[in-house]
């Protein structure tokens, strides 16, 4: 459609249907005088983003504001910032980062690199879904060790069932590492660092009772469990926690993907001899 057709289209817009709108609980725009489709003022939860907040708020403060609708205090800012640093780069062995790197190794679009990291990092094994479910356990058990021990032992004794759900059935208590042997040093360091904060009541309780909870789960604490406790301390709900865990782990995936884009595909594992096919019929007669 060219400009002339566009004018005709506008002239033909004679219906009286009310315009459909986007309802927002935190974002408001005021248009430029010369263009109703360009914003002159953007307010986030009442704050003028470009006229007031920009230059005053840090990225982490703005992130908190976007999700919570309130300006964080110093302790909340410190906790969210610390968590964001701790989970920003899970490292190239992590499945979500591996996915981004596999996309990078083949020269895929950069958006697909991040989409790959999101898709793989969304799940119930070390991903955002696990954080969401760990937050559910915090809500269920609070800071009561007996309740936690009962809940974790139920997971250990649960029989696997097939569910009519897009997510696979739970195979381990969320927040704990089913393949771990002991709680790794970086996770203990993260817990110690984040718990040193006057809003970190869940994290402090977790630090105090980590050994008992690990014994009840028969598994070591995972970073997803630390993140879930931190999100509880920050007042986020399950969906907010799940979404932030997806978001805050992307920087590392992005950096590792870019690293692969700059390297030979031969420097990224193809696992050339890695497939152990159980039912190989073998080459057919006449095959090359």
């Amino acid at each position: 459609m060219n400009a002339e057709n566009a004018d005709n289209k506008n002239n033909n817009d004679s219906n009286d249907d009310p315009k459909e709108t986007i309802r927002s609980s935190f974002w408001h725009e005021q248009a430029e005088p010369d263009n109703p489709f360009a914003a002159a003022v953007c307010r986030c939860a009442g704050f003028d983003v470009y006229g007031d907040l920009l230059g005053k708020a840090s990225w982490i403060e703005y992130l908190y504001l976007l999700f919570q609708g309130e300006q964080p205090d110093a302790a909340q800012t410190k906790l969210l910032n610390g968590l964001a640093v701790a989970i920003a780069n899970p490292g190239p062995r992590d499945y979500s980062v591996h996915a981004a790197m596999a996309a990078g190794a083949g020269g895929s679009t950069l958006a697909s690199n991040l989409m790959a990291a999101l898709a793989v990092g969304a799940g119930r094994l070390g991903g955002a879904r696990e954080v969401c479910e760990a937050m559910g356990l915090w809500e269920q058990c609070g800071r009561d060790l007996n309740t936690w021990q009962r809940a974790l032992e139920q997971y250990r004794n649960a029989r696997q069932t097939v569910t009519a759900d897009i997510w696979p059935a739970a195979q381990h208590p969320p927040g704990f590492d089913p393949r771990g042997i002991s709680c790794p040093t970086p996770i203990r360091q993260t817990l110690t660092q984040l718990a040193d904060n006057n809003v970190a009541i869940h994290l402090q309780w977790l630090q105090e009772h980590r050994s008992d909870m690990e014994a009840a789960a028969a598994l070591p604490l995972a970073i997803s469990g630390v993140a879930a406790a931190a999100f509880m301390d920050l007042g986020f709900d399950h969906q907010q926690g799940e979404m932030l865990y997806l978001l805050l782990r992307l920087p590392g995936a992005a950096a590792h993907a870019l690293d692969q884009h700059g390297q030979s595909r031969r420097t990224f594992p193809f696992f050339r001899n890695g497939i152990n096919l159980q039912n190989d019929p073998g080459p057919k007669r006449g095959s090359p």
């Binding site: 315009k19 459909e20 986007i22 927002s24 609980s25 489709f37």
Partner: peptide, 8 residues
Amino acid sequence: CASIDYHG
């Protein structure tokens, strides 16, 4: 811009 119905 006016199509954003703000309730905040």
